[in-house]
């Protein structure tokens, strides 16, 4: 039971689809000799209940607070649960391994790699959107601003929405300033769009569709709302950025 809930909690926190979480938990629960098993996962909550012959039913509720994206953990938990169900891993071993995953504070890559990856994502998209060399360099600079704001946000513990807003304000401002004072041949649109690509809600859209398709309408609706919130945050940020820039520099920014 503990193993199942722990597995579910890790998966839910790592951004797995709802049906996968429920499925994994009920597979692990089947290892017990209960007569009836119910598992139910929502975006922010897990509910697990099991009933044995001649006993009171047992229920555990977990609130899932922090959610992020960590595919590595999903893959890991998936493997453990598969091994457990294939009897090549005992329950105690599985629990110990899950506990190890949960407490693993070290990330998969070094911190510097994440920052470099953000930068490369922006540059890569600048190429994809048909940027010239100037646009790619501009994309690199805007990406550096994004990295800086991300680091600052982590230090000051911004919430997700505010993080997105401030990052896109930074991107818009930096893009316009670059265009105005440094590279006036630069294509502003390309640079700003590549800058916001790491912030757009691709994950939320994907998960929303898959959850809804599996019949988990509650989670699906929550994810759709999440996608809209992220998109709105980015849009508001860009808007505010442009307004600030045009107030500072003058109306000609917009042409």
């Amino acid at each position: 039971m503990d193993t199942a809930v722990l597995a579910g909690e890790i998966m839910q926190r790592s951004g797995a689809e709802t049906y996968r979480v429920e499925d994994t938990m009920s597979h692990i629960m089947r290892k017990s000799h209960a007569t009836r098993i119910e598992t139910s996962a929502f975006t922010t909550m897990l509910l697990v209940s099991l009933q044995e012959e001649g006993r009171q039913p047992l229920t555990v509720v977990r609130r899932v607070h922090k959610r992020g994206m960590n595919l590595d953990r999903i893959v890991h938990v998936n493997e453990i649960s598969r091994k457990l169900c294939g009897d090549s891993l005992s329950l105690e071993e599985a629990y110990a391994e899950l506990k190890a995953i949960e407490q693993e504070s070290q990330k998969l890559y070094r911190p510097i790699t994440y920052q470099a990856a953000t930068l490369l994502t922006v540059i890569g998209f600048a190429v994809f959107f048909g940027g010239t060399w100037l646009d790619i360099i501009g994309g690199g600079i805007v990406g550096a601003v994004l990295v800086g704001i991300n680091l600052l946000g982590k230090k000051l513990r911004f919430n997700n929405v505010f993080q997105d807003i401030s990052a896109s304000i930074g991107i818009a401002l930096m893009g316009i300033i670059l265009k105005q004072y440094v590279f006036w041949n630069m294509n502003l649109e390309t640079v700003i769009i590549s800058g916001i690509m790491p912030l757009v809600p691709g994950i939320a859209i994907t998960n929303a569709v898959r959850d809804t398709l599996m019949g988990d309408y509650l989670s699906g609706a929550a994810r759709i709302l999440e996608a809209f919130m992220q998109a709105a945050a980015v849009a508001v940020g860009i808007g505010v950025g442009i307004v600030i820039a045009s107030a500072l520099i003058g109306e000609k920014v917009l042409l």
């Binding site: 595919l71 890559y109 790699t113 994502t121 890569g124 998209f125 190429v127 994809f128």
Partner: peptide, 20 residues
């Protein structure tokens, strides 16, 4: 060039979301 660009971008993005 565009396809190479998107390849680089997504490999980098996969690092951000911690793909094994």
């Amino acid at each position: 060039l565009k396809i190479i660009g998107v390849f680089i971008a997504i490999v980098a993005y996969s690092v951000i979301i911690e793909t094994p």
